[in-house]
């Protein structure tokens, strides 16, 4: 590690230490909330749509962070749960005329069941096998969506209605921006609370040393399954609102690339560290947008940037304290 990195680490720790004083922390949170509230008015509709997408990624990345960052399970098919959430909403609202808010718990349940079906047998295996199985699961879900009549085959589903909430019709991009703000905040709060809990600690124990965790009385399979299902639920909720926002979904929204992008957000920011993962999600979405004036070169430049980040900060931009390479 170069001296410059250590200096930046120290700087970051100093900034983090500042935020440990409650007044400044609440001040910082207040500032972020104000910025989030004025953003649509300040930056216009295009930026609002991009930010909505970034906030969706915050939800998805925090969900995957429970699986990969907390519990240490490599999941290469996470987009499948995102698809389960989106398609459940699409099918229930379009084909069965179910209200969005009634379909939402069904979508969550469907993803949780899918998580148990895939996780139950495979979480007994060590991590590498899990990566292969989840990769396969991701592709199976996408191919099924492309071939089944009920999921609209390759063209997908369209005309998914926009939900009402207590007389508020969530319809415009700005409305959805605020919905995703709320979801992202919820995801952060839930992640923080899980992290500092008996179950959250158990995930870390299992990630660090499965055998010792088991010797300490932790049921490693049950704990991993809980992480897997929790991650699936985050994705399903993201997927449900994603479907309502766009009004149309197709199998290509849930490709392997999608899984990799979410995984990248988690790894880039710093696995297991909530602020890092949020930062990672913003980089993955905003990076290509900010580089838009580079034209054709932008994805290449973006890729080189990612490689450099991983080369110089292998444990992420904002890793857990004390986790430095």
């Amino acid at each position: 590690m170069t001296p410059r990195d250590t200096a930046s680490d120290r700087l970051r720790d100093r900034i983090a230490a500042r935020f440990e004083s409650p007044a400044l922390r609440w001040g910082g949170i207040g500032l972020i909330l104000v910025l989030m509230a004025v953003l649509p008015a300040a930056l216009g509709q295009y930026a609002t749509v991009i930010m909505t997408n970034a906030l969706l990624y915050v939800v998805l990345a925090l969900g995957l962070n429970v699986v990969v960052g907390f519990a240490g399970l490599l999941d290469l098919g996470y987009a499948a749960f995102f698809a389960v959430g989106a398609y459940t909403i699409g099918i229930l609202t379009l084909d069965f005329g179910v209200n969005f808010w009634l379909a939402l718990p069904v979508a969550v349940l469907a993803a949780a069941i899918a998580g148990v079906i895939i996780g139950g047998p495979t979480l007994r295996l060590r991590s590498d096998y899990l990566a292969i199985v989840t990769l396969g699961f991701g592709e199976i879900v996408r191919f099924s969506a492309r071939n089944l009549a009920i999921t609209g085959k390759a063209s997908g589903l369209s005309g998914i209605g926009q939900p009402w909430l207590f007389g508020w019709h969530i319809a415009t991009p700005t409305d959805f921006y605020f919905v995703f703000c709320a979801l992202a905040i919820l995801a952060v709060v839930v992640s923080l609370r899980l992290e500092n809990s008996r179950l959250g600690r158990a995930w870390l124990y299992v990630r660090h040393d499965e055998d010792v965790a088991e010797a300490m009385g932790i049921n490693r399979v049950a704990v991993k399954l809980a992480a897997y299902v929790t991650g699936a639920i985050f994705a399903a909720i993201g997927g449900a609102f994603f479907a309502a926002n766009l009004g149309a979904i197709s199998p290509e929204s849930f490709s392997f690339t999608q899984s990799v992008l979410i995984l990248m957000a988690v790894i880039l920011g710093g696995m297991g560290k909530i602020p890092g993962v949020i930062l990672g999600a913003f980089i993955v979405i905003l990076g290509p947008e900010l580089l838009r004036n580079l034209g054709e070169l932008r994805l290449m430049v973006f890729a080189v940037m990612l490689l450099l980040i991983m080369l110089f900060r292998p444990s992420g931009i904002w890793p857990k304290r004390g986790v430095r390479s």
């Binding site: 008996r198 179950l199 600690r201 158990a202 660090h208 300490m216 932790i218 809980a226 986790v323």
Partner: peptide
Amino acid sequence: RLFREMTVMQNVMSGMHSRTRSGA
């Protein structure tokens, strides 16, 4: 074999897992 990257307290707390109940 202590859990690396975790504090002394977090390490000891692992022992209480099987004696406690709270879930997600």
